[in-house]
Amino acid sequence: MTEFSDSPRYGLSQLDYLESEAIFIIREVAAENEHPAMLFSGGKDSIVMLHLAVKAFAPGPVPFPLMHVDTGHNFAEVLEFRDRKVAELGIGLVVGSVQDAIDSGQVREAPGGSRNRIQTPVLLQTAEANGFTALMGGARRDEEKARAKERVFSFRDEFGQWDPKDQRPELWSLYNTRINQGESIRVFPISNWTELDIWEYIARERIEVPSIYYAHEREVFLRNSMLFAVDKHLQPREGEKVFTARVRYRTVGDATLTAAVESEADTPEKVAIEVAASRITERGATRGDDKVSEAAMEDRKKEGYF
C-alpha cells in the first residue's frame, strides 16, 4: 500500500462528504444527459436537492428545469412554498397535474380516493411530453428496503419500469448515463443521505422549508393510530374526534395520506435532535400508503413510481 500524508486535517465531515458526492452526481447528469429535469415538490428532500443543484453551478444558473407531479392533494403551505422558491430562483417549473388527468379521463381515481398509484402515469406522461430523458429525484435509500437496492442512476425501460434484478452495476463514481431511444433514467443524488443528515444539513445551511415541518397548532383527528390534519381534502369520519394538538410533519406527501407527529420542535436543530431520538422511520410514522404490504414500495417502483 502506498503511504500518503497522514495529516488528519484532510478529512471531510459526513455532511461535506455527502454534499460533495451529490454535487458531483448532479453535475454529471447535466454534463452527460441531453434533457434532464429535477423533481421538486416543495418537500424537504427535494428542497435540499435543489439547494445542492444551485451550489453545483454557482455562480451560473441551474441548467435544467424543475418538474412537479401535483396530486391535487397537496398541503397549501407546500404549494405556496414551491411557487415562491421557483420564482425566487428564476428556474422553469413544469407541473403535471393528477387532477387534470382525472378530469380528462386519462387516469381513474381508486375507490378510497388514494392518488398514489395514479401519480405514476402522470409522471411518465409529463416527462415524455417535455422530452425529459433524465429525472433527478430526492429519494433516499434509508427510507425503505426496496430503495436500499436501487442504484444512484436507475435505468427505466420505455414503460418507465424498474427491473430490480437487472440493474446496471455501479462502480466507483463512474456512472453510466447512457440510454436508448425511448428509455429514461432516474437519478437520486441524495441516495446516501439519512433523514438525520437532511435535518443537520438544513440546520447548517440555513435552508428554508415549509412551515408545516416545524411544530405548530393544528386541528387533528386519530385514524389507524396516526394523527391526520383536518384539510380541505380530508375530513374526519363519523366517530373520529377532532382536537387541537402541537404537531409537525416528517414528510409532506399527499395530504390525505400523510400524518403528523406530536412535536415541540420549532427549529431545524430541535427537529434533528427529535429525529435522532425517534424510534420509528419517517415513512412508518406518517405514511398510510406504505403500510399496505412489505413489498408495497417495490411493487410501485416496478410500475414506474419514484
Binding site: 435509500r141 434509508d142 437496492k149 430490480p164 434484478k165 440493474q167 446516501n192 438525520l196
Partner: peptide, 10 residues
C-alpha cells in the same frame, strides 16, 4: 441476497 443493498447507521 440478490443484489447490492446499501444500509446506513451512525
Amino acid at each position: 441476497t440478490i443484489d447490492v443493498a446499501y444500509r446506513y447507521f451512525a
